[in-house]
């Protein structure tokens, strides 16, 4: 068993990669799997719940049966008493029988509910199973892309956790699909910052330049210019760094980044 699991662990993903192709499809697949997992969890829950209901009903059923048996015994002994004493009270017996038949009706109702519950469980099980393995497809047969917030969160999570190759690809995917959304400038900025944190300063400068050219009024523009300056500083190109720090102060005088730029100029001994 252990060996088979290990084998699967190593062979499965490879085969998926071969068949799949783009990272986006993998992400899509991953999210489908998570969705399937959730559905199974829901199903499990529903089965558990239905199981509990069935159990309760059965218990109630048994209780009622026991109660009826007791009552029948009571009636029998009562009848015996009555017969013995010679004072037959037929009316009482009729009442008891009525009550008994009402109980039997109630039992029947409970049985019907029970059957329906079992049927429901079966149905939801079938529904879940039929829904599980088919991912959504676009009309042309390709896989549907992730919604913008999910794609962005995935890429941002990779950025925060330091998986920069993944965050760069994730934000590029995001921009390819959703370049007109509110967070497009952030995505472009984090591509630059992922390069910056990897020490790939020329790539960082290029990506940061696109923040200011594509989204000049975005809230990440001051940070993009500042980080370009810091990238040049790390490449020992102090002249370009100083020019960019001054550009932050000039263009975005009220931004927090302007104060950071001033501090950097002070450290460099220029004002």
């Amino acid at each position: 068993m252990r060996k088979i699991i290990l084998l699967l662990l190593f062979t499965l993903p490879g085969s998926i990669l071969l068949q799949g192709g783009t990272k986006e499809e993998l992400i899509r697949l991953q999210s489908d799997i998570v969705a399937a997992q959730n559905q199974i969890r829901l199903l499990q829950k529903s089965i558990d719940e239905n199981g509990a209901i069935t159990k309760t009903l059965l218990h109630q059923l048994l209780d009622l049966l026991n109660q009826n048996n007791r009552q029948i015994d009571q009636i029998r002994s009562y009848q015996d008493e009555q017969l013995q004493s010679g004072n037959e009270n037929i009316e009482d017996i009729v009442n008891e029988i009525r009550m008994l038949s009402a109980k039997v009706d109630e039992l029947g109702l409970k049985l019907t509910t029970l059957a329906r519950t079992v049927e429901d469980t079966k149905q939801s099980l079938e529904e879940m199973q039929s829904r599980r393995p088919t991912p959504e497809k676009a009309p042309d047969g390709s896989l549907m892309p992730l919604p913008p917030d999910q794609l962005y969160s995935l890429a941002y999570n990779d950025y925060i956790m330091g998986n920069y190759e993944l965050s760069i690809q994730g934000f590029l995917d995001y921009l390819a699909l959703y370049k007109d959304t509110e967070f497009a400038d952030n995505a472009q900025y984090y591509i630059g910052d992922s390069y910056f944190n990897q020490g790939r300063y020329p790539d960082a400068v290029e990506a940061f330049a696109q923040v200011t050219s594509l989204f000049p009024n975005g809230d990440k523009a001051p940070a993009a210019v500042l980080k370009s300056g810091l990238a040049y500083l790390n490449m020992s190109n102090n002249d370009s760094a100083i020019e960019l720090f001054r550009q932050v102060i000039r263009t975005y005088p009220d931004s927090p980044e302007a104060n950071i730029a001033k501090q950097q100029l002070q450290i460099l001994g220029v004002e």
Partner: peptide, 14 residues
């Protein structure tokens, strides 16, 4: 499903 997710995590991240 757990295996597939594990596999993706292993293969998908450097």
């Amino acid at each position: 499903i757990t295996l597939i997710i594990l596999g993706l995590a292993v293969n998908g991240q450097d």
